[in-house]
Write a protein that binds this DNA or RNA. Structure first.
Lengths: 320, 320
DNA sequence: TTGAAAGCGCTAACAT
DNA sequence: ATGTTAGCGCTTTCAA
């Protein structure tokens, strides 16, 4: 027996388009046309049936890598997130994006990368599109098409912020503060801008920005909150996250200040902790599923379509 | 000019191994050998230099998809996580795994999939290995090699649980409870088993298991915690997560019970909320970076090596 | 010491 | 209405 060119590894034999072609007594081209519903081909229904039946009989499934080589890119969209520690917002965003992509015969894969694009992964899989969450949340080419406009004006984090402040305004608060973590954050400035914009459009007074220590130094937090409560007219504080809200409430508890009477507090992104702690935290629940779906469509160059439902709502609990 | 076969899309011309070969006046085979340091080849240092210089001069980088097609699998390890809402433990795990894989010329990509393998993604990128976090945490083929043995006995969640209970034991507690969320959880049973194992090995009494309501029903939580405090000898509660701990503390606050005097509480996985809330939560900080590195090595079929440092420590704050 | 060429599985231009 | 085949970029066998 003459030596033959063996495959690189002892690769388990896989069912290819060729096997299907043989089984259906057609060419590989025909198989490809049928299985991809390639437009502009004239293939009899009988042949189509034979091909499809052969494919399922053999358990054929297309080899994504070969297809990607041929097409120049894989049917993958890569989402770069800064961290695995997400909240409800991120989770629903990813779920929505993933579901929509599946519908479009693509897959979502996530990579963590603090800054810059995940070059190695891009080299490795040639994704159809790459989307950095930070870019998407901030101003960027993505923003316009993905966010679209809800309620004729704004959407995204900006919209959720409006939801958050509107609740405070409806409760009669006019002097508010916005508390955010004191550690560096790529979208901090933007969040502050959103708050200021929302406050203006709601006719509130100027917003006091409080950068809250989020480490072990409870004294610092207490001092900051005391100052806020005693030396300013602020009656309510909106926060960057539920965690920050819990920090404010923790300081208030230590100072024997009560929410909402001494200071009302509203969180952001409805985590588990705020729900079960005492007092239970009023917060904004973000359903970013619609965003995810839109981001998916935009990533593939499709029309994102219209908004269907409101992407955020206030969960009223005990602190406002 | 005769019609030529155009590439499928107007694909931007990319630098291939061929270009490098031409520039260095060698064959593509030689380029491949040099760039991959293929063992068993006799190529003069001069040639190697020429090839490498040509590669950098042209800005060549290998096409992962083509390589994957040829080799049968891509240099990707796929990690399937149940959700994007991770804690410090997951974050460090992913970071460690990712860093180690980079070292080994691979990339980590994450996919969310509640149960089962992410088949579409696997088809699409032919990953070198696929690892479900749930399998990894639970008993499975992965467990043995990845966890190895720390301190001669156990590692992983089991080890961290021991860390958690040991702290309670050292504080003199003998009757403890373990509180976990009442919603379904793939690793709940396992966690309970760990706690019981740790309690036994520490010579503690039988562990009371408390499935805590984690929804909006604060009354249910209060009732459960009151029952625990008043009708049982339990003096301390270890929890499944910081969130559950916050739920216990919330109920205690409503009941005017104080930690640690009435009931000591220790959380798990050191989240931001526990650190800033009042009273500040004692918890277990998990550094899963080492696990991640080990998981990476095992995924590639390498020896994970020995443990270097302790993977968990107690962060003592005010509740114990 | 190096090169020629096969072939991974697929799509699509072109031929029949 | 369907088949033939080039070629995506790479690795590796075999020959020179």
């Amino acid at each position: 027996m003459p030596p033959t060119l063996r495959p690189p590894a002892a690769r388990p034999r896989r069912v290819t388009i060729r096997d299907v072609a043989t089984a259906a007594s057609v060419s590989t081209a025909t198989v490809s046309y049928v299985l991809n519903d390639t437009p502009g081909q004239t293939i009899t229904e009988a042949t189509r049936r034979r091909v499809r039946e052969a494919a399922v009989a053999l358990g054929y499934s297309p080899h994504g890598v070969a297809r990607a080589l041929r097409e120049g890119q894989s049917r993958i969209v890569l989402l770069a997130v800064p961290s695995m520690r997400g909240g409800r917002g991120l989770e629903s965003f990813v779920a929505g994006m993933s579901a929509e992509l599946r519908t479009l015969d693509h897959s979502l894969l996530v990579t963590t990368s603090e800054d810059g694009l995940p070059r190695e992964a891009i080299q490795a899989i040639a994704p159809r599109a790459t989307l950095r969450l930070a870019d998407f949340l901030a101003e960027s080419a993505w923003r316009g098409p993905v966010l679209g406009a809800f309620d004729g004006r704004l959407a995204g984090l900006e919209f959720h912020t409006l939801t958050q402040l509107r609740h405070l305004a409806e409760r009669g608060h006019r002097d508010i503060a916005f508390a955010l973590p004191d550690h560096p954050d790529p979208i901090a400035d933007q969040r502050v801008a959103h708050v200021e914009g929302a406050a203006t459009s709601l006719g509130l007074g100027p917003v006091r920005v409080l950068r809250l220590e989020m480490g072990e130094d409870a004294h610092a937090r207490r001092a900051a909150v005391r100052e806020l409560a005693e030396a300013t007219p602020v009656t309510a504080v909106a926060t960057y996250s539920d965690d920050v809200a819990l920090g404010v409430l923790g300081a208030m508890a230590a100072l024997r200040l009560r929410a909402p009477d001494d200071l009302a507090v509203i969180g952001f992104d409805d985590g588990e902790a705020g729900r079960v702690s005492q007092p239970a935290l009023t917060t904004v629940r973000i359903d970013a599923g619609g965003f995810g779906r839109r981001a998916a469509r935009v990533a593939l160059g499709l029309d994102p379509g219209e908004w269907v439902e409101s992407p955020s709502e206030v969960i009223v609990r005990a602190t406002t």
